[in-house]
Design a protein around this nucleic acid. Structure first.
Lengths: 125, 125
DNA sequence: GCCTTTATGATAATTATTCTCATTATCATG
DNA sequence: CATGATAATGAGAATAATTATCATAAAGGC
């Protein structure tokens, strides 16, 4: 355990929602400007491996991270126009996914589901 | 319509399954080595916009492309160990997704669903 | 407190993709 | 079928996100 790890983990948990490695770096640098980009990437990787964080890819090339504990698993509904993101969970879909995996004799370890669309506001314009 | 577009489209349609921009470039260069990387990217973008191809992101940073016509929409079941990918479709899930989008007053334009797991073979080892 | 091991920060390298721009091809029109 | 406006191309530079390298610094057991 190092000072940096404590700080980055603390800052990561403080922020709700998604954030990129860069955004986290910025937030952490406000507290200690000497912390390097590489360290943030390294620690995010550790957090993902240990199950504390999970990666989310919402269509761009940037990986976003979000909490995986104290934060129920969920999927995303994303507006293509304004980028608004709504978290969704549907137990029926989860069950069906489990069933599909079993049909193919897979042991399910996770899934990503992003639904894209146009939100009401953007449609108004 | 240009020679390059014909060639790239033809080669793209000839190949089944996913392929990256780089893989397509390689395939096309076998026929005409003067074709540039940028052109392949440009044309892939056109194909996506026009609905002929669609982007697939399977967890890495590389975007893969696959046919969208003559090739029913589907999702993916991916083995985390060996990378084996199985295409799946479940009409019940599709319906539920539509419903979720409607609940939030979104007009659905598309979705991505990837289920990760460990396949039977990998589990054997 | 010392010493081995591991982590860090700065920076270079890599990878995938997009941009730029001079050159070339396309295609409707005279 | 030549012409010219317009759009597409290829080469390479530029960008963006991420990963690797490596000398230095910190951690934690003894």
């Amino acid at each position: 355990m190092t000072r940096q790890r404590e700080m980055i983990l603390d800052e990561f948990l403080r922020i709700e929602g998604h954030l990129t490695a860069e955004e986290l770096t910025l937030a952490v640098k406000k507290r200690d400007s000497t912390i390097g980009q590489a360290t943030v990437y390294r620690i995010l990787k550790i957090l993902v491996d240990s199950g504390i964080a999970r990666e989310v890819r919402l269509g761009s090339n940037v990986v976003k991270y979000e909490h995986n504990i104290d934060h129920e698993h969920h999927d995303h509904l994303i507006c293509e126009r304004c980028g608004k993101t709504i978290e969704i969970v549907d137990q029926r879909i989860e069950e069906l996914q489990k069933g599909l995996a079993e049909d193919h004799k897979f042991i399910i370890t996770g899934h990503i589901m992003n639904i894209f669309g146009i939100c009401e506001e953007c449609r108004g314009r």
